[in-house]
């Protein structure tokens, strides 16, 4: 009798756990935008590929020679401020504004040039239409200029494991103390770990 009750309780608990794992995307999650991406290794992936991890996401393009290198180094500096376990939980997603020219080969070359940790970083591209929707979602306007350069606002967005926007920073080249605090909180160990 006791054994069957326990089994039923276990079954119920498992059912609840499964249901929680398959929960719908929250209404305020940026992952509501389901767009395909291609990363630097040519692999087809999606915007919510890092779901389950805190994520730093930003727009860039490889031939950008002024702000974008500063962007990458700012991201790396932010990472460096975290302790090793926290850094291990963090993921970084860069999406190119220039899908025409930023082929996977270009993206891979940029990744090597900036010496990013490809275990946790992805450099990706999307279609023009999807890119516009993503930029709108991130509040990161951009405009292509005739010479191939872009006019773009540079922002780093921090998403939680469910894709909700936690913090945003437009500070490059130096550390944004508020943003760093949020980043630390987002990458700290979950309770019970």
């Amino acid at each position: 009798m006791i054994a069957s009750l326990r089994a039923r309780a276990l079954g119920i608990a498992l059912g609840i756990a499964l249901a929680a794992g398959a929960a719908a995307t929250p209404s305020d999650s940026l992952y509501q935008l389901e767009i395909p991406l291609v990363d630097q290794s040519g692999r087809a992936t999606a915007f919510d590929r890092e779901r389950g991890h805190p994520l730093l996401v930003s727009l860039f393009y490889t031939s950008c020679d002024f702000v974008c290198p500063t962007l990458v180094s700012t991201l790396q500096r932010l990472e460096a401020e975290l302790d090793v376990p926290a850094r291990g939980r963090l993921r970084v997603l860069l999406v190119s504004l220039d899908p025409e020219r930023d082929t996977p080969e270009q993206l891979a070359r940029a990744a090597r040039r900036h010496r990013v940790d490809l275990a946790r970083w992805s450099l990706t591209r999307a279609s023009e239409d999807d890119l516009r929707a993503l930029a709108a979602l991130l509040g990161a306007p951009y405009r292509r200029l005739p010479d191939g350069e872009f006019n773009h606002a540079t922002a780093i967005s921090l998403l939680d494991a469910e894709g909700r926007l936690v913090a945003r920073s437009e500070t490059l080249g130096r550390l944004d103390a508020d943003f760093l605090a949020r980043l630390r909180a987002a990458t700290s160990a979950p309770p019970g770990d």
């Binding site: 950008c64 002024f66 702000v67 974008c68 500063t70 516009r132 930029a135 709108a136 306007p141 951009y142 405009r143 200029l145 350069e149 872009f150 006019n151 773009h152 606002a153 540079t154 437009e170 490059l172 080249g173």
Partner: peptide
């Protein structure tokens, strides 16, 4: 492209870009 018309909200600052905010020109 409504979100990327990229004119400053304060039209008096035209011609005075904040370079770190906007790449390019």
């Amino acid at each position: 492209d409504a979100g990327s018309l990229l004119a400053g909200a304060d039209s008096r600052e035209q011609g005075d870009p904040d370079r770190m905010k906007f790449c390019g020109s």
